[in-house]
């Protein structure tokens, strides 16, 4: 079992995030389709969850006391598959057949097919309600376990997100921590051009949430916010993580085009060089 360590080893987590990015890029290049930008932007956050914060037992995926992770922005499936494989939920060799017929690693995560996937997602806007339900159930059972839910910033345009935000505030779900990957992009362009989501912090506060605003690529800030969120009582916490879409691959960074476009073999090699040199 992996227990949450007392203090984060920031250097090790940074390197783990680098490895996660490498797996994401290799997986996406092999599949030739899938979501690059939003998998890379949230890589640091999700690495911190799986390799620092969350209490999980990869060998016992239905352990009742585990912390739960709900990937509401289900298109970041490659990121989830990478951390699950690297945590030991399933064999890493599966990653090479992402999105192929017969492979359990579907374009969007299916909980019926993959250990460690709590619930199937892919249709945006539904994850926070599910997280609320889990948080309510855990509270009824007097469990210590916590629930983490990752949303996209574009995703918060869905009405259901705000219905769920209201519920979590109302039920004072302090065992719930939502994280919004604020990369300021969605498919059709910048969120502020398509449909403004700002001011986000004020919106969440108005729904009775405790708001953290951090740099979503600063491992220390991420780990710190996750620790602090655990101490907030009487209300749910949301971490607004400012990120860069496609973070880690300089020539994809901040470009809306790479939302759902995968690297070519040549781009992969270039990206791996960048990530390798970051590791030194």
């Amino acid at each position: 079992m992996t227990a949450a360590p007392q203090s984060p080893d920031i250097m090790a987590l940074k390197d783990q995030a680098r490895i996660v990015r490498i797996e994401i890029l290799k997986m996406l290049t092999a599949s030739g389709s899938g979501h690059t930008g939003g998998s890379l932007s949230a890589a640091d956050i999700v690495t911190a969850l799986y390799f620092y914060k969350m209490r999980q037992r990869p060998g016992d995926p239905s352990w009742p006391d585990r912390d739960r992770f709900i990937l509401s922005k289900g298109h970041a499936a490659p990121l989830l598959y990478a951390v699950l494989a690297l945590s030991g939920y399933f064999d890493k060799s599966l990653l090479g057949s992402l999105r192929k017929v017969g492979c359990p690693l579907q374009g969007h995560p299916s909980s019926k097919l993959v250990n460690g996937v709590e619930v199937s997602t892919g249709s945006l806007g539904q994850g926070l309600s599910i997280s609320n339900g889990i948080a309510l159930g855990l509270r009824l059972d007097k469990k210590e376990a916590r629930v983490y839910c990752l949303l996209g910033d574009g995703e918060t345009q869905e009405g259901q997100v705000w219905e769920a935000a209201m519920s979590a505030g109302h039920y004072m779900l302090d065992n719930l921590c939502a994280i919004v990957d604020v990369n300021e992009l969605q498919i059709d362009g910048r969120c502020c051009d398509v449909m403004t989501v700002e001011p986000m912090a004020e919106k969440w506060r108005a729904f009775n949430w405790h708001v953290f605003e951090i740099n979503g690529h600063d491992m220390e800030e991420i780990a710190n916010a996750l620790d602090e969120a655990e101490k907030i009582k009487g209300k749910p916490s949301v971490i607004l993580a400012r990120t860069i879409k496609s973070k880690g691959v300089s020539f994809f960074e901040g470009k809306a085009e790479y939302h759902g476009v995968t690297p070519t073999e040549e781009e992969l090699q270039k990206a791996l060089l960048e990530l390798d040199s970051n590791g030194k």
């Binding site: 574009g154 995703e155 345009q157 969605q186 498919i187 059709d188 398509v194 449909m195």
Partner: peptide, 28 residues
């Protein structure tokens, strides 16, 4: 938020005043 895929982007480009991107909110 899928105008590139649904191909309504063509209309959007020609008639920006008559095109409304509602964001990721199908009910709206």
């Amino acid at each position: 938020d899928l105008s590139g895929s649904t191909k309504t982007a063509k209309f959007a480009k020609a008639f920006p005043d008559r095109f409304f991107n509602m964001g990721i909110s199908e009910q709206d």
